[in-house]
Design a protein around this nucleic acid. Structure first.
Lengths: 159, 159
DNA sequence: CGAAAATAGATATGGAGCATAACGAATGAA
DNA sequence: TTCATTCGTTATGCTCCATATCTATTTTCG
């Protein structure tokens, strides 16, 4: 069996094979996450929230008095990247940046009533959308998948 | 029960609660994917490949004659964003951009021997790293998780 | 105490990933 | 032939994330 001579450029026909990549867990997860992420973005758009601003709002609501450094650590992002987020939430009257009397460097973040309300509404919408997205998965599959992700997540990078 | 007066800013103590977010599949998946993504980036660094350049190299290797538009669609990115990727792979001598005689607008992408070799080496490294990363998951959990992600992935955004 | 180190938030800046608009060249359809 | 479409490309902008650096404040320690 000798190779057919490849004169110049023969174009590929038929569907594109991703057989090699399909075997990878990470490849599957990226494609899956893209779907979930897109759905989440659409869900949050009516509330004028992005994934990051929503996440920050939830964490501040659930943890009143949180400092920005704590919030950044919880969100796994660097402190500089949080500034614009808290600034936006504060500008929109969703959170307050109270000065801490005992440490005048820090802010104690706190959700306003409007912030708590928006957070609750957005959370309900996300819950509904996610339930619809996962409707095709039975309980066992959902539970095992969550458990699998928890275990992987537990592996700290470079740990 | 009247609220304690919140004079100014009381700071939050103890661990940060992410109870609300933890209930979301998407939240878990993002954190999980971050771990996998970071591991993949470390794995590919010795080969001077990023996730995108690696993915493109694999697809071109597995589908000789692929056009850029087809590759972009397979990678779920827009055509303009692929230009820099193919340009880099071509500059490094890993792929060729052959002109198609029957359509002088298009390129037929093809991996060079060096590209095929690097692709195989990188793929083996990725496989080994991923196996190590997933060592804590039994077969059932791995299989069901893959199946769950396949099903979610099948849901086309806005479909 | 007072000097040095550490910390909180902010600023500036850059890179990577993604999207849209628009272009020239080439092709295909009316 | 004229018009619409397609291929690769350029220009541009947004979001997310990281590092280095700054000021103002603690905190540590000699």
């Amino acid at each position: 069996m000798k190779d057919a001579p490849r004169i110049s450029g023969e174009s590929h026909d038929g569907p594109v094979s991703d057989a090699t990549l399909r075997g990878f867990f990470g490849y599957r997860m990226k494609r899956c996450f893209n779907v979930i992420q897109a759905d989440l973005a659409r869900t949050l758009r009516p509330f004028d929230l992005r994934m990051l601003t929503y996440t920050a709002l939830v964490l501040v609501t659930d943890n009143p008095g949180l400092r920005q450094a704590q919030l950044a650590e919880a969100m796994d992002i660097e402190r500089p990247n949080l500034v614009a987020i808290t600034e936006e939430l504060a500008r929109r009257g969703l959170i307050l940046r109270n000065r801490v009397p005992t440490d005048r460097r820090a802010y104690a973040l706190e959700a306003t009533p409007a912030g708590v309300k928006l957070c609750a509404e957005a959370t309900e919408a996300v819950r509904a959308h996610e339930a619809a997205l996962l409707a095709g998965l039975d309980d066992e599959m959902r539970g095992l998948t969550l458990e699998a992700m928890k275990r992987i997540e537990r592996i700290r990078p470079r740990g």
